[in-house]
């Protein structure tokens, strides 16, 4: 069983988690063109390298981020979303 380390609950079985796909920048609904809006909805980072993605620890309904290598499946780190806001 693969173990994922939840920033809040510590290391847990992967079956306790749900993937929500790659992190995307939120477009501004006022200024974004229809084309870019569609792109935002339907495209996601699909590179073979490291991707930053949303995960949820299902039993505690806690959303967090992970940096994972999409080829080797190595999880580089997991972190609380507040780190993103702090970085902005």
């Amino acid at each position: 069983m693969k173990i994922l380390t939840c920033p809040m609950n510590g290391p847990r079985n992967i079956t306790e988690f749900q993937s929500f796909g790659p992190l995307k920048a939120d477009p501004d609904p006022e200024t974004t063109s229809d084309q870019d809006w569609a792109r935002h909805l339907f495209r996601a980072n699909n590179t073979r390298g490291v991707i930053t993605e949303w995960w949820r620890h299902v039993p505690s309904n806690y959303f967090f981020l992970a940096e994972r290598n999409a080829t080797t499946n190595e999880v580089i780190r997991t972190f609380d979303p507040s780190e993103l806001e702090a970085a902005q």
């Binding site: 992967i14 749900q18 993937s19 796909g21 790659p22 073979r48 994972r68 999409a70 080829t71 080797t72």
Partner: peptide, 13 residues
């Protein structure tokens, strides 16, 4: 599989 990956490994899960 429940998350994206470029791999053809099989899993016990």
């Amino acid at each position: 599989d429940p998350y994206q990956l470029y791999s053809t490994r099989s899993t016990l899960d």
